[in-house]
Simulated scan of single mutants.
Amino acid sequence: MAKPTLKYLRPVILGALWLGVLVYMVWAGISVCRARRVRQVRSLEIEVVDSTSQGYLVTGRQVRSWIAQSGIGTIGTAVGEVDLHAIERLIARNGFVERVVAYVSDPGVLHVKIAPREPLLRLLTDGMNAYVTSAGYVFAAPRASSLYVPVVTGSYRPPFPTDYVGDARDYLDERLRQCDERIAELERSKIPVYRREQTYENEYRMIRRERLRRRWWKGESAGAFDKRVEQLREKKAQARRTWRYRTRVIRDELERIDRQQEAELRKQKKLEKSYEDFMKLLTFVETVEEDDFWRSEVVQIAAYTTPSGALEVELTPRSGSYTILFGRLEEVDRKFDKLLRFYRNGLSTLGWDTYRVIDIRYDNQVVCKK
């Protein structure tokens, strides 16, 4: 009899243990919630995580000002009533903030950790005043920011509006999607035109098929029959003229729609080319920044769009009062190697102020102007 008793006793003991664990977890949760309702936030600590030595985009003092102006309760507010998500949304709405986390630790300290984006360059072209990351994320330069990054000036127009904040690829994809929708809309507009064309074709075909027979049973004379034949000929001739005119109108309308679709396709290609040039510019700046010599030598980058639509850059060096015409952002390493050889074998002998313009746009040669 002892074995059956042990058989049923083990599940009872395990069930009691699990019930005890469950009761404890519920009690602990209730205790924590009660403690959070009673305990208040005693201090606010803001940490701006900056992995670069370029300067800063935002300071803890600025973040404190944002939170204070928002009216979100912090110090003196019960821990359970602090709207952590509202604090994170308030800070994250600034485009230069990549990540923000807000939480309260046990002593009643409200922590706000902010990771700003790491800009690669600053665009000061054609009304732009924005920072851009190496991945192509664009955000407006915040006030009172102190950041040392390469500055790109000139008349270059990037593939997004001056007030745009976000990933440049997202903006491009949205524009391409709009073009696709427009092309599809234009394609749908052809349907009623095709239907009209088919209707006109059927009407003309029916007239062409009309035939006349002499009405012997009505005593129709030959002259009367010839007259009806002439009338039918005139009717068919008129129908043919009308059909040709309508066909020409239909063709012109379809060609007009085709031209609109081709314009949208050209717009898409232009957008893709503009984005490609933009990413080439970012890659070019990365190349300059990764090289110790060129990072210290290149003081300013000026970008321009040529009449043909190509992107070209000019460089302002630190070593002399001349301008380097770099040209298109193609074969960048080869051009820099050529320029470096000219530095060592030419300017170091002739003098750094000998020329006013150094042009390295052409293959296997350096053209200089005084």
Score class of each variant (00 low, 15 high):
residue 151 V to K: 13
residue 48 V to D: 11
residue 17 L to A: 09
residue 244 R to P: 09
residue 4 P to V: 01
residue 337 D to M: 04
residue 282 L to T: 02
residue 270 K to L: 00
residue 296 S to V: 10
residue 177 R to H: 11
residue 24 Y to D: 09
residue 170 D to G: 04
residue 125 T to S: 11
residue 27 W to M: 13
residue 118 E to I: 08
residue 192 P to D: 02
residue 256 R to M: 11
residue 233 R to Q: 14
residue 283 T to D: 09
residue 186 L to M: 00
residue 324 I to K: 02
residue 188 R to A: 04
residue 92 A to C: 13
residue 19 L to D: 04
residue 97 V to E: 09
residue 41 V to W: 00
residue 19 L to W: 10
residue 257 I to D: 01
residue 143 R to M: 15
residue 165 V to F: 03
residue 278 F to L: 05
residue 240 R to C: 06
residue 270 K to F: 00
residue 120 L to H: 04
residue 201 E to A: 08
residue 295 R to V: 01
residue 344 R to N: 09
residue 55 G to R: 03
residue 82 V to I: 01
residue 134 S to A: 09
residue 167 D to V: 10
residue 185 E to L: 02
residue 196 R to C: 10
residue 222 A to P: 06
residue 156 Y to H: 03
residue 56 Y to A: 12
residue 35 A to H: 13
residue 40 Q to Y: 13
residue 100 V to C: 05
residue 230 E to Y: 11
residue 133 T to R: 00
residue 41 V to L: 03
residue 263 A to Y: 00
residue 17 L to E: 02
residue 233 R to G: 06
residue 141 A to H: 03
residue 264 E to C: 00
residue 286 E to F: 01
residue 192 P to M: 00
residue 129 N to V: 04
residue 278 F to V: 07
residue 48 V to S: 07
residue 94 N to G: 03
residue 360 I to F: 08
residue 234 E to Q: 12
residue 307 P to Y: 08
residue 87 I to H: 01
residue 34 R to M: 06
residue 205 R to W: 08
residue 53 S to N: 15
residue 40 Q to T: 14
residue 200 Y to K: 08
residue 157 R to I: 06
residue 18 W to V: 14
residue 234 E to R: 13
residue 249 V to L: 02
residue 132 V to D: 00
residue 196 R to F: 01
residue 207 I to W: 09
residue 363 D to V: 12
residue 29 G to M: 04
residue 84 L to A: 00
residue 332 V to D: 10
residue 117 R to F: 07
residue 245 Y to R: 12
residue 313 V to W: 02
residue 138 V to N: 04
residue 28 A to R: 15
residue 31 S to G: 14
residue 142 P to L: 04
residue 177 R to L: 01
residue 56 Y to M: 06
residue 45 E to S: 12
residue 115 A to C: 07
residue 247 T to N: 14
residue 177 R to V: 03
residue 105 S to L: 08
residue 124 L to N: 14
residue 282 L to D: 02
residue 97 V to W: 08
residue 310 A to Y: 04
residue 333 D to K: 10
residue 259 R to E: 00
residue 90 L to E: 12
residue 206 M to E: 12
residue 79 V to L: 11
residue 107 P to L: 03
residue 320 G to N: 09
residue 208 R to W: 05
residue 351 G to H: 06
residue 158 P to W: 05
residue 52 T to L: 05
residue 353 D to C: 04
residue 247 T to L: 13
residue 362 Y to S: 08
residue 339 L to V: 02
residue 283 T to M: 10
residue 131 Y to E: 12
residue 150 P to G: 11
residue 304 Y to E: 15
residue 342 F to Q: 11
residue 124 L to Y: 09
residue 344 R to K: 07
residue 268 Q to T: 01
residue 277 D to N: 15
residue 112 V to K: 07
residue 48 V to R: 03
residue 318 R to T: 14
residue 236 K to H: 03
residue 244 R to A: 13
residue 46 I to V: 00
residue 1 M to Q: 02
residue 212 L to Q: 14
residue 206 M to C: 12
residue 34 R to Q: 12
residue 263 A to H: 01
residue 304 Y to S: 11
residue 169 R to T: 15
residue 178 Q to E: 09
residue 234 E to V: 06
residue 90 L to M: 01
residue 173 D to M: 03
residue 123 L to T: 06
residue 301 I to Y: 01
residue 213 R to N: 10
residue 255 E to I: 00
residue 18 W to I: 14
residue 334 R to T: 03
residue 10 R to M: 14
residue 207 I to L: 15
residue 353 D to M: 10
